[in-house]
Write a protein that binds this DNA or RNA. Structure first.
Length: 828
RNA sequence: GGGGGAGUGGCGGAAUGGUAGACGCGCAUGCCUUAGGAGCAUGUGGCUGCGGCCGUGCGGGUUCGAAUCCCGCCUCCCCCACCA
């Protein structure tokens, strides 16, 4: 064992025995539990609040090493803030609805509920091993009726406020399993379970009006989030300004008189030589002329069969077929052909595109292939009417554009838009990539949507007092081609709340992102049966101050939560706009075979905990590299952390009375080291730089060992140094810090102490080392008193052997002094 | 195609204008040991004529001084993407 054999026997530790993590860790956790030291007190307003939350896990079965990586850092942040004097809320729960439970259920013929709760029980045990400072009394499990009741409540509130609606929409459909799939379940355009190609299908579905907040959500000035996440959100919202312009089709005497197209390049309107409709465009059938019917129908059917990847591949050749119809460009009265092409997306803009081959790469490719005319209307510099080799995208001068000729295209854009609006041919419009949030899922394991369909009254909300609409636990969940709840007649049949006639319940369930969009608020009142959360507590404790999680949620979850919070704000539940003020994205741990997740490489931490202990594993994970970077998992190196904690144990169990206190220099050195440590580690911990924080602790332990070996420091200084070491160690290695703290006779608990302070004045030693450079190259070092004047330093530097060697016989042109660091002599 | 990030010893990484390689792994030598895949100590970028020289993906530049700032390239990773 680590008995520091270099230390004379008379100063070896007497308090201590060996560091036995297996004995210490469970015992220490029991102490914490018994004293309830992590219990959050919402009423304590003497200390500033700090709501720090790690993204809750899906109960997939086991906590893998990636979970440890995520949660160790989150816990260290919570512990550190507590020791900085904050009243900390650090909760944890389970994101328990979702497809994996159903898949596992189908595979193993075990009920999703049983599977989920078994996993939760198992993971709670594994969480125990970590020794995190969660207040488990606030645990939430999203598949529990007392939680999802409030999903239903908010659904109804959204309905009341016009934020939820039902509408026909395209969904992913797996022909093999005869079911729709969640977006997350479509991997590379194929069904994750059976690898069948997924197709689109139109079905009436429920939506949340997230696009109402698109503009507001682009403003992220009030939050401190990583740039990458902010950019991802901006891109996903995808605001673009343009013009909706209508092409006349009145010659066909349909109900609709025009085709609307959206463009951001209205300056190119005179270059339109065709118009392309998405295969799903509602007017395709009506506009197809008899002679073209067969080819168009075949094309549309083929497009419907294609996978999302095929449809959206940028390298694929653009294809299309003519409808035989024409439409009229309102600006030049030109009649251009109408085609159907699957490079036009039904879901963006108006589902129809004006084809300007001269100024759009896709249109150019399309026109080349089908021999459609290409007309330049924005001239590149020096253009003199020749054919162009490729689409010209950049701005230029308007040509072939009637009254708008000779205008720079940027001005042309505005002038043409004005003309269009004045003539009511169209209008300026802002479009978004963001679509309204489709929340319906034809799945069993989710929150039932609280709606009853009545032949007379239509879709009727379930009255609030009847919530929750409980998910029946005895439904058949085997795939049968229909939603499992449809076959559950007891669930299905319900009287219409409005007229009392027999009705049928909505059998779709909600997207599980609903659960995680507001769960942080439920931590505030997990047991409250009368409200989703206590408004008073919410006023004091919202929003979340610090949120940590992985980059995989950069868009969906975080966007939904930001939407949900604004909806709650506008309905009067909260008075703030953003749910999460600070966001930290930790990196991803990988192995040679890829990302560690519930699905792949579930590297089990349990054997490592057994061999090394939780503290060692936590510190090792935090020491691997910067927390926001992640990296490749390897076990090599964990021994270094083990050695270090053994050294800490050794230091923490020595008898300070063996020290003499005779060496002033050693005393002063340790004192400087102590204050330096505190400054460094507090700065690092605030910035989540755990790897360098641990490095600083290692350095300090080495310095303490040096001081001990010297023997000349006082027992008081030793004890205060041990105290400092343990206080700074506590957030990272909570068990060993507590054990050593108690062994030294200090008051329980180390985790309820305040961090030590540092004194800037104590960061400097009496003598400092100055680097002597000649022409910027290091030639010598000198020791000078820390209060030496520049003159004195200059004299010493110029007299140093290294400087003399390189300045002899040369003229000194300049001298540069960086106080406390270096002295540079410039010679010519 | 768009966006974000990264390139430093044998390895993980540190240093954001001031001694490049902190801290750790690994390795070497020594001690201890019946033994050790344990522990402890010392050393560890390369070359060297022991004066130094070279060295942070590549090429230039700014500066007394550049991993760090500027210009031009190369490579890798991640996310989004036929967004009209």
């Amino acid at each position: 064992m680590a008995l520091a054999s270099n230390i004379p026997p008379e100063r070896s530790h007497q308090l201590g025995d060996r560091y036995d993590h297996a004995e210490i860790e469970p015992r220490i956790r029991e102490l914490w539990d018994d004293a309830n030291i992590y219990r959050w007190n919402p009423d304590d307003t003497n200390r500033p609040k700090w709501f720090v939350q790690s993204m809750f896990p899906y109960p997939s079965g086991d906590l893998h090493i990636g979970h440890w990586f995520a949660f160790s850092g989150g816990d260290a942040a919570a512990r550190f803030k507590r020791m900085e004097g904050y009243n900390v809320l650090h909760p944890q729960g389970f994101d328990a609805f979702g497809l994996p439970a159903e898949n596992a259920a189908i595979r193993g013929n075990v009920h999703p509920k049983l599977w989920t709760y078994d996993n939760i029980a198992n993971m709670r045990n594994q969480f125990e091993l970590m020794g995190n400072s969660y207040d488990w009394s606030r645990q939430i499990i999203t598949c529990a009726p007392k939680y999802y009741k409030w999903n239903q409540y908010f659904f109804l509130k959204f309905l009341d406020h016009g934020l939820a609606y039902r509408s026909d929409g395209a969904v992913n459909w797996c022909p093999e399993d005869q079911t729709t799939l969640a977006n997350e379940q479509v991997k590379d355009g194929k069904c994750e379970r059976c690898e069948t190609v997924v197709v689109k299908r139109n079905m009436p579905q429920w939506y949340f009006a997230i696009t109402k907040y698109a503009d507001e959500m682009l403003d992220m000035s009030g939050i401190d989030w990583p740039d990458k996440v902010i950019v991802s959100q901006e891109n996903w919202i995808g605001r673009s300004e343009g013009v909706n312009i209508r092409f006349d089709i009145s010659e066909y005497a349909l109900d609709t008189k025009s085709i609307a197209t959206f463009t951001t390049r209205i300056d190119t309107i005179f270059g339109v030589t065709f118009v392309v409709l998405a295969p799903e465009h509602p007017l395709v059938a009506e506009l197809t002329q008899p002679d073209f019917k067969a080819t168009v129908e075949e094309y549309v059917a083929a497009a419907a069969r294609e996978t999302e990847i095929e449809r959206t591949s940028t390298v694929r050749e653009k294809t299309g077929v003519p409808t035989g119809s024409y439409c009229v460009n309102p600006l030049n009265r030109e009649r251009v052909p109408l085609l159907v092409g699957d490079y036009v997306l039904a879901t963006y803009g108006t589902g129809a595109v004006m084809g300007v081959p001269a100024h759009d790469e896709r249109d150019f490719e399309f026109a080349k292939k089908y021999d459609l005319p290409i007309r330049v209307v924005v001239a590149p510099e020096g253009w003199n009417g020749q054919e162009i080799e490729a689409a010209y995208i950049a701005p230029g001068i308007q040509v072939n554009s009637g009254e708008f000729n000779d205008l720079p295209s940027e001005q042309g854009k505005e002038a043409i838009a004005d003309a269009i609006e004045n003539n009511r041919w169209g209008e300026r419009i802002v479009t978004y990539h963001l679509r309204d949030w489709l929340i319906s899922r034809q799945r069993y394991w989710g929150t039932p949507i609280p709606i009853i369909y009545c032949d007379d009254c239509g879709a009727v909300p379930v009255p609030y007092e009847e919530l929750p609409v409980e998910l029946p636990s005895d439904a058949k969940f085997q795939p049968s081609g229909r939603s499992p709840l449809i076959e559950h007649t007891e669930f299905l049949n319900a009287p219409c709340p409005s007229c009392g006639a027999p009705g049928e319940r909505e059998t779709d369930t909600m997207d599980t992102f609903m659960d995680s969009s507001w769960y942080h608020m439920r931590y505030l009142s997990p047991e409250d049966d009368s409200v989703p959360f206590d408004p008073e507590i919410a006023a004091n404790w919202g929003p979340v101050d610090q949120y940590t999680g992985g980059m995989e949620h950069a868009v969906m979850h975080l966007l939904y939560a930001r939407f949900f919070n604004r909806a709650m704000r506008d309905m009067g539940y909260v008075d703030f706009s953003e749910p999460y003020l600070h966001l930290f994205s930790h990196g991803t741990l990988t192995t040679e075979t890829g990302k560690i997740s519930k699905r792949s490489n579930p590297l089990a931490p349990d054997p490592l905990v057994q061999e090394y202990g939780a503290d060692t594993l936590r510190c090792y994970l935090m020491f691997l590299g910067p927390w926001d970077r992640g990296g490749a998992w390897t076990e090599s190196g964990i021994n270094g952390i083990r050695r270090w904690l053994h050294r800490v144990w050794d230091i923490g169990t020595r008898n300070a009375n063996e020290l003499s206190g005779e060496d002033q220099t050693a005393e002063s050195e340790l004192d400087v080291a102590s204050h330096t440590l505190t400054k460094r580690i507090i700065e690092d911990m605030r910035a989540y730089k755990y790897n360098t924080a641990i490095a600083a602790l290692m350095t300090y332990a080495n310095q303490m060992n040096d001081a001990w070996e010297n023997g000349g420091i006082t027992p008081e200084l030793w004890r205060s140094s041990v105290q400092r070491l343990l206080l700074h160690l506590a957030p990272l290695a909570p068990h060993i810090a507590e054990e050593l703290w108690l062994r030294n006779g200090w008051d329980f608990s180390v985790h309820q102490q305040m961090l030590p302070k540092w004194d800037e004045a104590k960061l400097t030693v009496d003598t400092i080392k100055i680097v002597v450079q000649v022409n910027g190259r290091v030639r010598d070092t000198i020791n000078v008193p820390s209060n030496a004047s520049e003159k004195e330093v200059a004299a010493a530097a110029l007299a140093s052997p290294g400087a003399i060697r390189h300045t002899e016989g040369k003229q000194i042109r300049r001298e540069i002094y960086v106080p406390g660091r270096l002295f540079n002599i410039v010679v010519g």
